[in-house]
Simulated assay, not measured.
Amino acid sequence: MQSIFHRFVSLFTDGKKAASAYQPEEGLIDADIFNNYSYIIGNVFSYFNDLPTPAKWRFVKRTHEFRKQKQFHFIGLESSEDTAILVSSSAVQVTFGLKNYQLSYFKDIYILADAYHMDSDNELYIGHVAPDGIYLSWKHFLYGYEYKNDNINVAVHEMAHALLYNNFFAQYGMDAQFRMNYERFSNSTGPILADVIARRRSYLRSYAFSNMHEFWAVSVEAFFENPAELRRNMPDLYDALSNVLNQDPGSKTKLLKPES
Rank of each mutant, 00 (worst) to 15 (best):
179 R>N: 14
144 G>K: 00
100 N>A: 14
74 F>Q: 11
40 I>T: 13
183 E>M: 12
106 F>N: 00
70 K>M: 05
183 E>V: 13
211 N>K: 02
106 F>M: 03
190 G>W: 10
27 G>S: 02
71 Q>N: 09
69 Q>L: 11
128 H>W: 04
70 K>H: 01
14 D>Y: 02
90 S>A: 06
107 K>M: 03
27 G>R: 07
48 F>A: 03
196 V>T: 09
108 D>S: 01
17 K>Y: 12
17 K>R: 13
229 E>S: 05
16 K>P: 04
127 G>P: 01
149 N>E: 12
186 S>E: 10
249 P>S: 05
161 H>A: 06
227 P>S: 01
171 Q>D: 14
142 L>W: 04
143 Y>H: 09
190 G>P: 06
55 A>T: 07
21 A>E: 12
85 I>S: 00
15 G>D: 06
49 N>V: 07
62 R>T: 02
179 R>T: 14
118 M>R: 11
237 L>V: 04
86 L>E: 00
114 D>F: 03
61 K>P: 00
131 P>Y: 05
210 S>E: 15
25 E>A: 14
168 F>H: 10
233 N>V: 04
14 D>T: 02
149 N>M: 12
131 P>G: 08
104 S>I: 03
242 S>C: 04
59 F>Y: 03
44 V>G: 00
91 A>S: 11
86 L>Y: 01
204 L>K: 02
40 I>Y: 08
202 S>W: 06
104 S>K: 11
206 S>W: 11
186 S>Y: 14
204 L>Y: 01
175 D>E: 08
253 T>L: 08
236 D>K: 01
133 G>Q: 06
99 K>V: 15
132 D>E: 10
37 Y>C: 02
58 R>L: 07
184 R>Y: 14
146 E>V: 13
51 L>E: 05
259 E>G: 13
66 F>L: 06
